[in-house]
Nucleic acid binder design. Structure first.
Lengths: 109, 109
DNA sequence: TTCAGCTATTCGGTGTTGCTATGTACCAGT
DNA sequence: ACTGGTACATAGCAACACCGAATAGCTGAA
């Protein structure tokens, strides 16, 4: 969708991925494919992998290497307790933002 | 609110300021004060001024210098036609994001 | 057998953005 | 003179998403 989306994804993409992982474990390639499917057509593969490395280093997810039938081994990520707490914080921050913006939008119309 | 908010504001803060300006003209100091009042307690003054310079250079706003009784002259910004079009785009992008996230949130609960 | 194509991950370099810290300047009241 | 509120500007920094390219395993067609 362009530059606006790129900038808006900063900060939220992390939350999106954590939210996905809160439902089920997943690996990078899979997450990227799912996001593209959901309309995030221009999300770069490299972006997701970098993000996954980041949240792993922060201790928000656990990782398990699982062999694949169709290619190199997958790195399967799952949200741990710390990750869930962080995701909670994310939702709070997100809620705050959406409330302010919703208010501004109503005023503007 | 912390680091999460800082990252989330990237991309949205611009939209917030444009949305404010769509309702009425305003100057930097005023906008900063208003944002703090609305709960964006940690938004830095410099951030707003830099943002205003940016959107001016992109031709989204018109500027008028107005003398103040209480200090140096104010730079009063008002949204022009191009700015309104850009704000429309912003709302579309924002809507898309909120819909996806709302969906993810429901699935997670 | 080789080569294209899908699966799957990694990494270096770039541009944009918000924050920190600091500086400038104007004015009123003490 | 000095403090404090008003008002704007800017240099340096960190974080993040994007781009492009590389690596590597597997399968099926030529």
């Amino acid at each position: 969708m362009g530059k606006q989306m790129t900038e808006m994804l900063k900060g939220t993409l992390e939350g999106i991925v954590l939210a996905i992982l809160s439902g089920r474990s997943a690996y990078g390639y899979e997450i990227t494919a799912w996001l593209r499917d959901q309309g995030f057509s221009d999300i770069a593969e490299g972006t997701i992998y970098a993000l996954l490395v980041r949240i792993e280093q922060r201790g928000l997810v656990d990782v398990e290497k699982v062999p694949s039938e169709k290619g190199p081994p997958r790195k399967v990520y799952s949200l741990n307790a710390q990750g869930r707490a962080y995701l909670e914080e994310f939702w709070k921050t997100w809620s705050f933002l959406t409330e302010r913006l919703e208010q501004l939008r109503e005023e503007g119309s």
